[in-house]
Design a protein around this nucleic acid. Structure first.
Length: 492
RNA sequence: GGCUCGUUCGUCUAACGGUUAGGACAGCGGCUUUUCAAGCCGUUAACAGGGGUUCGAUUCCCCUACGAGCUACCA
């Protein structure tokens, strides 16, 4: 086998957003390319004019970019949001290659590997109906397969609309050698004479994609399992031209909880929605990479670069995977915690969406809630209770059977004790010392921790469930802490 | 209906003929503890079924069941 350069491609259609399954396909392509020092190409397959969505290509590119799955060739979005193409095998937008496809199709016709078909869609519909009624396989009946070439010439000249279909063998079989699935065999007679040029002159996926793959010297076609059964047609195109086909690798599907093909109806599938919900791109990549493949089975967290060096296409699973969103949350937490304080704060500050007089206090609070966060979109709901004006009538300031009088008395003593503390007591980072000082003092007073700490904590947070009083004191500082204690005392 | 693919704890997975079938998430229990969260420790839980091949099958082969994909002038 010739020693060709490894070149892979991700080739989505611009019909909307980047699907989470598409992200995984793109990622596996990218991982393989990076692992072997090959090329990863992004090609846009926009041959279906009826499904084209304006802005979809930009969206696709920017979602990929945000996730760090970047092609080194093909369609690319620059920092200004402009689409550009780079590389020697362009154009990388399929509609711009229409003439090449048409020429290839005509070449197939002259070679006797394809033929023009004049059947109307009405005839085809009727045919399919009849076949279904008779429980026959629904296939094109070959009506135009053997029309004499001078007649087809005449009808084309007469302006009849037509499509071009592949003239597939009627006997024998093909076997494809899939990197992931091994050998898969199909009978030719069960494969339909696929349309390769539509009546609007545009090629279908089958022709366009394979010709482009050849022209762009793609060495491995890594795509979803839904393509497995059309691979024989693709192989036929390659062999008709005498081209060496790429290796094929069909990835298992991503599934809904009911095991059907993952769809929008059953939850989020758009990468941008996941990002919007506050999953970190690195976490999403990590998650999606583990859906169908794991380098060892005893580790869950892998950085993108590690994946690049460990990836092995032949070890990808054969069976589909349901998304375990709880695990995604967990992975996201791991990444959230691994962030440096500054990186975390910069990410999270704009999401607090509350106004706090002292920005330093807000930062401290943001750090305080970090370990309670699963997703970034929870920042606001987590942080805002800490800055709401407490309403002490709605919550229980007393611990267990404690009387309000006792609570009030204790809070008063705590207030005075705290008031008397030196400036260094209130410094950020002093949490452990704060705890120690207070606990020692409680012990000296012969109090129980609970009868002091519950009222203090509730007075500070205004919540029955909250971070510890020590953390709150450290976060709020002297002024805010005393203010809240006073307010609580006043309410009792 | 036809063709094709798939099937290890609820979920994601490890195992490439010999293991008490491992890990992770979730669940459950405990510890810690002023509450919650986190953390730590422990624990429940799987080879779809039946035939082969083999000294030995989760692993290889066949059948069945179930699930899925495809069956367009969509990709």
């Amino acid at each position: 086998m010739s020693q060709t350069r490894l070149r892979v491609r991700y080739a989505p259609s611009p019909t909307g957003y980047l699907h989470i399954g598409g992200l995984r396909t793109a990622l596996y392509n990218e991982l393989l390319a990076r692992k072997h020092g090959g090329d990863f190409i992004l090609r846009i397959e926009d041959t279906d004019q009826t499904r084209f969505v304006p802005g979809a290509t930009e969206n696709l590119c920017s979602s990929l970019k945000r996730c760090g799955v970047e092609a080194n060739e093909g369609v690319w979005i620059d920092d200004q949001g402009n689409l550009i193409e780079r590389g020697e095998y362009g154009p990388y937008t399929q509609s711009k290659r229409k003439e090449k496809h048409k020429a290839y199709a005509e070449q197939l016709v002259t070679m006797g590997k394809a033929y023009p078909c004049f059947c109307t869609s009405e005839r085809l519909d009727k045919l399919r109906e009849e076949q279904q009624l008779m429980k026959q396989p629904t296939m094109y009946d070959g009506h135009c397969r053997n029309v004499a070439s001078d007649e087809t010439q005449r009808r084309i000249m007469a302006g009849e609309t037509y499509v071009i279909r592949l003239k597939l063998p009627k006997e024998g079989n093909v076997t494809i050698d899939d990197v992931i699935r091994g050998q898969v065999t199909f009978d030719w007679k069960l494969i339909d004479d696929q349309v390769i040029i539509k009546s609007d002159g545009f090629p279908t996926y089958h022709l366009a994609s394979m010709c482009d793959d050849h022209d762009m010297q793609i060495s491995h076609v890594i795509r979803g399992e839904e393509w497995l059964s059309s691979t024989p047609k693709h192989l036929f195109i390659f062999s008709s031209f005498g081209w060496e086909p790429p290796r094929f690798a069909h990835l298992p599907l991503l599934l809904n909880p009911d095991r059907s093909k993952l769809s929008k109806r059953q939850g989020d599938v758009a990468v941008e929605d996941f990002l919007e919900k506050g999953y970190l791109p690195e976490a999403l990549i990590n998650f999606v990479a583990m859906l169908g493949w794991n380098p060892t089975g005893d580790r869950e967290i892998y950085a993108h670069d590690e994946l690049r060096s460990l990836f092995a296409l032949e070890n990808v699973n054969k069976s589909g995977a349901i998304l375990n969103l709880e695990k995604l949350d967990w992975i996201n937490e791991q990444y959230l915690r691994a962030l440096s304080e500054n990186a975390y704060l910069e990410l999270v500050r704009p999401l607090a969406k509350i106004s706090v007089e002292d920005p330093a206090i807000l930062d401290r609070a943001l750090l305080l809630i970090r370990e309670r966060l699963h997703r970034l979109n929870q920042v606001h709901e987590c942080i805002s209770p800490l800055f709401q004006e407490p309403n002490y009538n709605e919550i229980n300031l007393t611990w267990k059977a404690q009387s309000p009088e006792t609570a009030k008395e204790i809070l008063n003593e705590v207030r005075n004790f705290l008031h008397a503390q030196s400036k260094s007591f209130w410094e950020w980072g002093n949490r452990t010392a704060i705890e120690q000082t207070i606990k020692t003092w409680i012990a000296e007073k012969k109090w129980q921790n609970g009868e002091v700490l519950w009222p203090v904590r509730v007075a500070l947070s205004g919540q029955e469930k909250s971070p510890s009083p020590f953390e709150l004191l450290e976060t709020y500082g002297k002024e805010m802490s005393l203010k809240r204690l006073d307010a609580a005392i006043g309410s009792l």
